[in-house]
Amino acid sequence: MKAKLVFLGRLEEQAGRGFEDIAASAPLDWTDVLGWLGDWHSIEFAEAVDGEKVKVALNGALVADKHGIVLNDGDEIAFLPPVSGG
């Protein structure tokens, strides 16, 4: 199973790249994704992504409850940081 993680805005800066392809032997739930982010980047980065201000889109659609996400083969999950505007 392969999936793509996409980091937008300042999350891209923190991650050091705009995306990361991941492979797993089975679908990944939200806890698995956070564990992978913690191992790949840092626990602090995973905690930031898990925070209530970071929104998540799965295959282009915003997800209301990111804790219910399950990534399957070919899925793309995008992490959207809070945006300030005026």
Rank of each mutant, 00 (worst) to 15 (best):
V63M: 00
E47S: 11
I69A: 07
E12C: 13
D65T: 10
L8R: 13
A78S: 11
G16Q: 08
Q14G: 00
L71S: 02
G9T: 15
I69G: 04
L80H: 02
L62K: 04
W30P: 03
A61N: 07
G16R: 07
N59H: 00
K2E: 14
G74Y: 04
A3K: 11
G86A: 06
A61C: 01
D75T: 03
V70M: 07
I22Q: 07
A3R: 00
W30T: 04
I69Y: 01
R10V: 13
V56E: 00
H67P: 00
P82H: 01
L58N: 00
K53H: 08
G35I: 09
V49E: 08
K66Q: 09
G16I: 14
D65P: 01
G60S: 01
A61K: 12
L8I: 13
D75F: 01
E44H: 13
S84W: 03
K66N: 06
E52H: 03
H67M: 09
G86D: 14
D73P: 05
T31I: 09
A78C: 01
P27A: 02
K55E: 12
M1C: 04
L11M: 04
P27S: 12
A57N: 00
D73K: 01
A64Y: 02
A15V: 09
A24E: 05
G35K: 10
V6F: 03
F45T: 11
W36M: 10
D75E: 04
E13C: 05
S42I: 05
E20P: 00
K53S: 12
E76M: 11
S84V: 09
A78Q: 00
E76T: 15
K66L: 00
K2Y: 01
F19H: 14
A46G: 13
H41M: 11
G38Q: 13
V70W: 02
N59L: 03
G35R: 05
P82M: 10
D21C: 01
W36V: 06
P82S: 03
A48L: 13
V54K: 02
W36N: 01
W40Y: 06
N59P: 09
H41G: 00
S42P: 06
L80V: 14
E12L: 08
V56H: 08
V49T: 08
W30G: 10
W40I: 05
D50A: 15
D29E: 11
L71M: 06
L71C: 08
L37M: 11
E20D: 07
L28G: 03
D21S: 11
L11E: 12
P27Q: 10
F19T: 10
W30C: 03
